[in-house]
Amino acid sequence: MPAMEAVVVEGIRRVFTPRKREPVTALDSVSLTIPVGEVHGLLGPNGAGKTTLVKILSTVLLPTEGRALVCGHDVVTETKAVRPLIGIVFGGERGLYTRLSARQNLEYWGALYRLSGPQIKERTAMLLDRVGLTDRADQRVEEFSRGMKQRLHLARGLMGDARVLFLDEPTTGMDPLAAREFRKLVGDLQDEGRTILLTTHDMVEAETVCDRVSLIDRGRILATETPRSLGSLISRFQRIDIEDAPDALLAQLKLVAGVSSVSPQADGSIRIEVNEDGATALVLRHLVDAGITSVKTSLPSLEEVYVQMIGERGLVV
């Protein structure tokens, strides 16, 4: 019976021990289950552990502790069973033979995925067409733009007809149009029954293509929900926007329990942010009592959820 879960991660911990330096814990007790056919987003800042998890799942890296299964096969003890089932797409410029043509790159990977000669030709032509590179098929990859390389990366990841695709920041370097096309392609791949684990920084991407999103930071998964549920998960971080209010009222609102900030916005409105359950009701009561009825409440976007849960860390990793 085929596994219903495409990916199962149980208590994975990964510690790197650099020479002459303190050990670094890249993943700490990470558990995650991705059902077959799901597009799952792994959202987190640089150094959060996203790529480490992808590398463990793609058998490139061994976990220090814990267990991970892909389509029911252990990624440590059953690598031979796992490898034909997975496709890996790492973002960025690297990962291709730049002095070879796009076609030669794909043909090589087709052979490594044990396709026959006719299968290689057929899949190469089909995938080049799918990623819009047919006209550039015989051009050296070093002459490609970054977006074209990224599309070729994706075609390469699909050469083996993978059931589970690991896309590690796949839209890095793509222009907005190409990124939009890419997201459409991810939807098509999902329609074919493939499971996709997508790591990204891009909130719009996560919200657009992912069925569920896991927020990861400092090697720990903070939450796994649908993009919409993640918003409601921190509904206590609700925002209340008002058009006009006297300074005395604003000063009074700042003292209400659970109000984290009262700040003017660029459009002249005032935004009141709360960080405790029940605080919204208290603020609304104050506003109504003061005769203010032009009030708008809203849930945070995924980006705001991300910032709230991971924190405003600037460039610190």
């Binding site: 890996i88 790492f90 960025g92 990962g95 990977w109 490594l112 044990r114 083996g160």
Partner: peptide, 13 residues
């Protein structure tokens, strides 16, 4: 250099 060694190791061959 090409950043392909990890993918090569992760290939079935």
């Amino acid at each position: 250099w090409n950043g392909t060694i990890e993918m090569l190791v992760a290939a079935p061959s």
